[in-house]
Every structure is written in C-alpha cells, then in structure tokens.
Design a protein around this nucleic acid. Sequence first.
DNA 1: CTCTTTTTTTAGACAAGACTAAAAATTAAA
DNA 2: TTTAATTTTTAGTCTTGTCTAAAAAAAGAG
Lengths: 216, 216
Amino acid sequence: MTLSEENYLKAIYHISDTCEGGISTNAIAEKMNTKASSVTDMIKKLSEKGLVNYKRYKGSELTAEGKLIATNIIRKHRLWEVFLVEKLNFTWDEVHDVAEQLEHIKSEKLIDQLDEFLGFPKRDPHGDPIPDKDGNVSDNADVLLVTLDKNEKGIIVGVKDSSSSFLKYLDKQGIALGKKIKVIDKEPFDNSMKIRIKKEEFMISQQIANNICIKK
Amino acid sequence: MTLSEENYLKAIYHISDTCEGGISTNAIAEKMNTKASSVTDMIKKLSEKGLVNYKRYKGSELTAEGKLIATNIIRKHRLWEVFLVEKLNFTWDEVHDVAEQLEHIKSEKLIDQLDEFLGFPKRDPHGDPIPDKDGNVSDNADVLLVTLDKNEKGIIVGVKDSSSSFLKYLDKQGIALGKKIKVIDKEPFDNSMKIRIKKEEFMISQQIANNICIKK
DNA sequence: CTCTTTTTTTAGACAAGACTAAAAATTAAA
DNA sequence: TTTAATTTTTAGTCTTGTCTAAAAAAAGAG
Ligand SMILES: [Mn+2]
Ligand SMILES: [Mn+2]
Ligand SMILES: [Mn+2]
Ligand SMILES: [Mn+2]
C-alpha cells in the first residue's frame, strides 16, 4: 500500500458514509483535491488489486478487503489523535494534520501497543468512534443538533467538521464534548437557534448546528 | 524536504562521522542501498538547495544548513526510539525500523512535546546521544570494547551496530547498557576476548567487541 | 427523441526518483 | 609516463502519480 493508495481508500470510505451506492469519480476528486482523470487512473489500479469494484462510467465502491484497509487507517488516525490530546497536550483543533501523517506508519505492534497505552479508547477527541482491528465501527445513533426542536435537551457527543476554525469557534463559545445542551428557541426563517449551555444562552447559525452531534 | 532528500542528508551525516573529508558518491550509494548514478542526481539537487557542497568528482559534504536538517531527523529518530521502548514495551532490537518511518513526521510541536513527555532523555535505547534542537550532539568520549586491555574494567554505554540480530545476541549473553564489564583475557591471534559480566565469564569475538562502547 | 450539458475516460506530457549502459575523469600499476 | 582499473558522471529509460486537453458516454431539456 502506497501513501497515495491509502488516501484514496480512506476518501472513498468516508464518502460512502454519507451517500449511498457507487461513488462518483468527481466526488473522489473533490475530496482528494485532485483531478478526475487522476482519480480514474488510481481507481483502475485499486480495481486491479481487488480493493474497489469499478465499472467504467458507473462509479466505484470498496470491496471487503478495501474497506478493511480503510478502517485500519482510520483506526490509526483516531488513536494517534487521542495520543496527541491525552499525552502530548495538543488541543482538539491541532491534531488532525499530524494524524494525517501518522496514520500511514506501518507497524502492527506499534498500533496495538498504542491502543493499550491509551487504555483502549472508544472515541477520538472529536467524538468519532475508533474502529477495532477487524474494521468494526460502532455506529452512533446520534443526531445532529439542527434536528432538535425547541425545549429538547441532549449531550454533545461529537462534531462532524474537524477543521481548526470550526473547533476554535466551539472553544470560544464554550461548546465541548460531554456538555449538556438545551434548545431555548428556534428561528424558522434561517434555522438558527438559541441554545443554553451551563446557564449561558446564545445564538448559533444553522451551519454550526449542522456540525454538532447530540445524544438525546 | 522530501522523504528521499531527508534520507540522503542523514546518510551523508552518518558517513561523515566515521571518515573525514568529502564523502564519496559510492559510499553514499552503499549506505542507501542504491546506485551511484542515483546518488549523483540527488547530490546535484541537494547542492542546488544549498544543503551539500559538491564539486564534480570531488565528493560532497553537508553545509551548516544540511547538517542541521540531518541532526533534526536523527533527533526525531532517537526520541521515537525512546518512546517505543519506554512507553510501548518495544525491545531495543525492534525500534529501529519503526523509527525510520516516524523520523519523517513533520510537526515541531509534536517533537517538542514528545521530548518533554519522555522527560528530556539524553540518550536513545542504544546509548546514542539525542541531538538538541540546534543540532548540538554531545560527543561521547567513549571507547570501543575491543581497545580495552587485559584486566581493564568499564561500563557498557552503547552499541555501534543497531541491527536486530546483533542486539538479540547481546540480550542472549546478558550484555546490556549500564552493566559493568571486565576483560579477563585477550587472545592476540584473533583479538577475541574473555570478559566478565556479573560474575559470569565468556568469550566474545573481535567483531562483537568492535561494536560495544565502553566508558572506562 | 434529438440536442445540449455534464461527467467520465483516454491520450499525451511531466516531475521525482530510481536503474542500466556507456562515457569521462581520476587513481593505481607497470 | 603510459596503460589499466576504478570511480563518477552522463544519457536514456522506467514507474508512480499528477496534470491538461480532447474524446466518449451519460444525463437532462425541450
Ligand atoms: Mn482527524
Ligand atoms: Mn478525529
Ligand atoms: Mn535507530
Ligand atoms: Mn538508536
């Protein structure tokens, strides 16, 4: 597995999570910040290797083997993120870029021992589940904040967007994993909402509410 | 810096340690397990970038800038080796290959925090000094075991060969860093020697004695 | 059902890094 | 000091992964 192949598999896996069916070449190109023609080339190679199913003009999807490789990389990514936050004093908005590099380190013992060293964590600093070695991912039955109605309550358990700017915004507002949240009011016009966290009330836009995961 | 460029700089740095003057193209090729023609190409590129001084047919040596990059990679390599042994239960013969990968991870904060997390170690699991951020390496005034005379004593402080097979041999013989050692007898014919460690006496060949560093 | 727009694939080119084979420079030998 | 051996460089090729431009297929509009 080259670094590039691994990144393609991971991208396809992540896209598959959101939309159903065969993944379009353009969707992959957009996620990878590359051109569709490059994607076609790589997809062909991965298809040769039996890691994706591909029919010309019909899009692609991961095989079982491809999916296992993808989840393994995601497992490594998220374990490293936990390590960086728990052991090396990184904040949750700083870890992603470094984890993008660390996820490609090849050593089974390394990742097993890291897992143990961290106490077999179940989730990464952004609330995302850490796959096990066989590729099983505990799918969260969580719900987006935007779907809560007026007066509903819940606990913040994750974020969908892990960009530094978004996470820093959350920090500034005092929005963090584990906090209790209540929807005080909802503006139908733009779907913005007034929320309460720890007795403080403030407005957030729909875009924000769209990227916060809640357990009711 | 690409991965390949970094590895070349590191190789040149390590060769410079042993022999003096300009490093020959062939020496680099041998260390990197590549061909001389590939080395010439890369040396030219590094020369363009001001990281090595190079004159056709005259060999190459690192500039101050090139040396700083090299020591920084070695710093990372050795810190990761400490991490693997101290925190993740790796043995000293298992760490090198993983550290070869980890040394290329780019994040200043990562390595600073790792250094602190490990308690600012001075040496790696093989007794090699860990360079500081400015490229200063505490050069050891240590001596090779092979140079000790009959009845001389010392403490084992390092190994020159970090190959798995050599380290496993040492483990089997009970030879480890920090142990006191005494030369009981020396065979002039083949330079093998009888040594004592913790009341146990046994023979070792010159090749072994050549790769063990001693502080008298 | 035909024409247009969008998506996807092909064809051809390029940069990085490596290799082989051959030429040039240096070093060693006679 | 000429010749022979060795070292180093050049020339040309290959693979990986990327790109642009153009062709082909699929999807949408009227
Ligand atoms: Mn991440
Ligand atoms: Mn994450
Ligand atoms: Mn090492
Ligand atoms: Mn070492």
